[in-house]
Amino acid sequence: MAGSPPAASSSRDPRGPAAPGALLSAADVARVVDRMAHQLIEKAGNGLADLVLVGIPTRGAPLARRLAARVEAFSGTAIDVGTVDITLYRDDLRLRGVRALEDTVLPDGGIDGRLVVLVDDVLFSGRSVRAALDALRDLGRPRAVQLAVLIDRGHRELPIRADYVGKNVPTSRTQSVKVRLAETDGADEVRVTEPEERP
């Protein structure tokens, strides 16, 4: 494996909540995605062709496509990609205004019997992942489901843990983690913001 990038520390940052400001630059994001691709290849072993990366919209979808592209670049194996919109499975619909739906797209062969890795940008309470698991259950019967996230910011409300984490970022509950991606936001960047400086 290529040299460990600086952001790859898997141990918890002992200094507590992150300081506000840019946490990951565009170059950092690219490095993190590359590292996650290598981890996927390593862990999947010779089951790599079985792998389906399923992004959770909005930003999980382009992340899944990037990861798939990097896995293919590193391993030479084409990877199936899909998206699963979780809006209709959320348990917090009544807490906010109505949301527009996003696409649910699965590979032609479906997900039955395959290794599905859900991909999302930020892992926080775990409720989105719970909703995604419910949605997957209605869409088919994978052999196994794993989870890959760019940022794990802690504060879980459900017994959910990611299999692949780009970066652990200790945060306070009131802070927000803003992931921006070129596909959806024009540029790659991750920031931690305080409540009063929300854009």
């Binding site: 919109d85 209709l88 499975y89 619909l93 739906l101």
Partner: peptide, 16 residues
């Protein structure tokens, strides 16, 4: 989107 999400599924039900 709902039609696409439900097409070809066995379980034609959403918990929404």
């Amino acid at each position: 989107q709902i039609e696409a999400a439900l097409s070809g599924r066995e379980v034609k039900k959403l918990p929404t």
